[in-house]
Design a protein around this nucleic acid. Structure first.
Length: 439
DNA sequence: TCTGGGGTCCTAGGACCC
DNA sequence: TCTGGGGTCCTAGGACCC
């Protein structure tokens, strides 16, 4: 038996904002999604005010201004960079690691370590991460990944300690008996409803079910969940694998009606998706292009139009894909539509090395491939979009709202925080904080 | 006025093959 | 009269995750 430990950063995006602006400690803070659409992260103080995850911002705006909630637009460059730092440190700490999301990782330790010692290891890891990176983190310890998720959830409920050990089977049984089934990792709204209809309300109830029946009613996924909750590990650490599909899409800041603007947006998304594709040394066999328009301003209903292209040879060539995306746009575009969003998805991605030369088309175009890699190298060295394709346009009138974005404290020399030494205590201030109070 | 963005896995059913 | 059986691949859709 091994230990699975789920390390999960507390209120990650909020914590990232706080690292470079300590004045934010103890204040209610929320971070919004792209386009300042809805709430994607909340500090404890904001949670206490009743602001829900995923709630539309305009619906809580008044509440925010009444309680002086600090509102940030999302700053993915900052969060991505901070995530990298956290994961680097965690990788040093554990024998094995699976980076599960931007703010979570599963760690695996050998079962020979005594349970109480696992606890001490996590205490130490927590202390180091806070000190080295500045991000508070919680640990859940258990014999399976699903139980580690439960343990982490319990750790978060007592964040001063921030660690919960669910290794002891007797104690575990008592806890699972009270743990709502809908909170279990892998149980969404639909499955919860189906389980409740069978009088299964807690993880403990579920554990008592017959595996054969669970298999029949809920498939392999259900049965796996059952054994995991019973303490039998079915899910190992996933190896980091190249993406099988890459999506790039955005909602617009306003309705877009011009075909040219859509073409520029699509070219931009294709270009970004291709950079990601080449960075994992992949080629896509197909591309899917979609546009979304709003049916009416009263109801939140969107209509989607899509087209797909199969490439004669798998490719990662940006100009070729931009051309293909433009052809899709021509098929899809309708005058007098008010488009709110568009995007591209690169599909059926295979490793570059596996692209078989075609009898008639030949192999990958070496010259073009070299050009693409040179463009990527220039942009990596001199900053994003030092070189870009004309088709992407320069005005980007379609970009979304980002009213309150913090600085690029970790990724731009011009935005480094300044340490003031004139005051008795050294304080770190962000030079150009665009934080605003809604007052 | 205003509601994000990016993924994965599994299953069922149809097409097709021998 | 009587119409097999087994396998693979592909796709769409469902469900879930952060």
């Amino acid at each position: 038996m091994n230990y699975f430990v789920l390390a999960d950063c507390n209120n990650f995006y909020v914590s990232c904002e706080r690292v470079f602006n300590p004045k934010l400690e103890g204040k209610p803070i929320i971070v919004l999604s792209s386009n300042d659409g809805c709430v994607v992260a909340r500090s404890q103080e904001a949670k206490k005010l009743g602001i829900k995850m995923g709630e539309a911002f305009f619906q809580v705006k008044d509440l925010c201004s009444r309680h002086k909630v600090l509102v940030f637009s999302s700053n993915y460059q900052l969060y991505g960079d901070m995530s990298q730092r956290v994961m680097d440190v965690l990788s040093e700490m554990a024998p094995e690691i699976e980076i599960y999301s931007v703010d979570e990782a599963f760690l695996k330790y050998p079962g020979t370590i005594p349970s109480h010692e696992m606890y001490s290891i996590c205490e130490e890891n927590r202390r180091i991460l806070k000190r080295w990176v500045g991000i508070p983190i919680s640990f859940g310890i258990a014999p399976t990944k699903t139980l580690a998720k439960v343990a982490n959830d319990l750790a978060k409920k007592n964040r001063d300690i921030g660690i919960f050990n669910l290794s002891d089977p007797v104690e575990r049984e008592k806890i699972l008996q009270k743990y709502p089934i809908g909170e279990v990792w892998g149980i969404g709204g639909r499955l919860r409803a189906r389980l409740q209809a069978l009088n299964i309300f807690t993880a403990g109830d579920f554990c008592k079910m017959d595996p054969v029946i669970v298999r029949r009613k809920f498939g392999v996924v259900g049965e796996r969940m059952l054994w995991e909750l019973r303490g039998v590990s079915c899910l190992g650490l996933a190896k980091s694998a190249p993406k099988k599909s890459i999506t790039f899409s955005r909602s617009f800041g306003r309705a877009v009606t011009e075909k040219e603007e859509l073409a520029e947006a699509l070219a931009t998304f294709v270009s970004k998706a291709c950079i990601k594709l080449r960075s994992q040394k992949g080629c896509a066999k197909a591309m899917y292009v979609f546009l979304e328009s709003q049916l009416s301003s009263k109801e939140f209903v969107r209509q989607q139009f899509s087209a797909a292209v199969d490439f004669p040879m798998p490719t990662n060539d940006t100009p070729q894909m931009i051309t293909a995306a433009k052809e899709c746009l021509t098929q899809l575009f309708q005058e007098n539509q008010r488009y709110k969003k568009c995007g591209v998805i690169l599909l059926d991605i295979i490793p570059e090395a596996q692209v078989a030369p075609d009898l008639f088309l030949g192999g990958l175009n070496q010259k073009r491939s070299h050009l693409m890699h040179t463009v990527d190298a220039v942009n990596a060295r001199f900053g994003k979009q030092s070189v870009f394709f004309g088709a992407m346009g320069v005005n980007t009138p379609w970009t979304g709202r980002i009213a309150n974005r913090s600085g690029y404290n970790t990724t731009s020399w011009n935005r480094l925080p300044i340490a003031k030494t004139s005051t008795p205590q050294t304080r770190v201030n962000s030079r150009k904080s665009s934080t605003t109070f809604f007052a």
